[in-house]
Simulated scan of single mutants.
Amino acid sequence: MIYADMSTQELFVAAARKSLSVGKKSLSAPQSLDLAAQVSAVDLGLKPALLYDSNSASSEQVQQYLSSLQSSQLVSKSLLTLDLNGNTLIVNPVTVGSNLEQVLHDSVVAMINVCHSLEKPTITDLLRGELKSMIQDLLHLLRRFEQLTEAEKPLYVGGKCEEWNLCTVFGLLLGYPVTYWFDQTKSFENCLSMTPLMVTTAAATWQADTTDHRCCLYSFSIPAVLLEETQSNLEHWGLGLKEKFKQQNVLKDLSVCQTTVTLPSVCL
Score class of each variant (00 low, 15 high):
Ser7Leu: 08
Leu11Trp: 08
Phe12Thr: 03
Phe12Lys: 02
Val13Ala: 11
Ala14Phe: 04
Ser19Gly: 11
Leu20Tyr: 09
Gly23Gln: 05
Gly23Leu: 11
Pro30Thr: 00
Pro30Tyr: 02
Ser32Trp: 03
Ala37Glu: 04
Ser40Phe: 06
Ser40Arg: 13
Gly45Leu: 03
Leu46Gly: 01
Lys47Glu: 03
Ala49Glu: 01
Leu50Lys: 12
Leu50Ala: 14
Asn55Tyr: 01
Ser56Phe: 12
Ser56Cys: 11
Ser56Met: 12
Ala57Glu: 11
Gln64Ala: 15
Leu66Arg: 07
Leu66Trp: 05
Ser76Tyr: 12
Lys77Cys: 08
Leu79Met: 11
Leu82Ser: 02
Leu84Cys: 01
Asn85Ile: 02
Asn87Met: 10
Val91Asp: 03
Val96Pro: 00
Leu100Phe: 09
Glu101Val: 06
Gln102Lys: 08
Val103Gly: 13
Val103Met: 06
Leu104Gln: 08
Ser107Phe: 13
Val109Trp: 00
Ala110Ile: 06
Asn113Asp: 15
Val114Trp: 12
Cys115Asn: 14
Ser117Phe: 09
Ser117Leu: 01
Ser117Ala: 08
Leu118Lys: 01
Leu118Ile: 00
Glu119Pro: 09
Lys120His: 03
Thr122Pro: 01
Thr122Gln: 08
Ile123Glu: 04
Asp125Met: 15
Arg128Gln: 15
Gly129Arg: 15
Lys132Glu: 13
Gln136Met: 12
Leu138Asp: 07
Leu139Val: 06
Leu142Pro: 12
Phe145Asn: 09
Lys153Thr: 15
Lys153Pro: 10
Pro154Asp: 05
Pro154Ala: 02
Gly159Leu: 03
Glu162Trp: 12
Asn165Ser: 13
Asn165Cys: 02
Cys167Lys: 11
Val169Leu: 00
Tyr176Glu: 02
Pro177Gln: 05
Trp181Ile: 06
Phe182Met: 05
Phe182Pro: 00
Asp183Phe: 00
Gln184Ser: 14
Thr185Lys: 06
Asn190Tyr: 00
Leu192Val: 04
Met198Ser: 14
Thr201Pro: 05
Ala202Gly: 02
Thr205Phe: 10
Thr205Asp: 14
Ala208Arg: 02
Thr210Leu: 08
Thr210Gln: 09
Asp212Phe: 04
Cys215Thr: 00
Ala224Val: 14
Ala224Glu: 12
Ala224Leu: 11
Glu228Tyr: 05
Gln231Ala: 14
Gln231Asp: 15
Glu235Lys: 15
Glu235Tyr: 10
Trp237Gly: 00
Glu243Met: 02
Phe245Ile: 00
Asn249Val: 09
Val250Ser: 03
Leu251Thr: 00
Asp253Cys: 09
Asp253Thr: 01
Gln258Trp: 09
Thr259Asn: 13
Ser265Ala: 06
Leu268Pro: 02
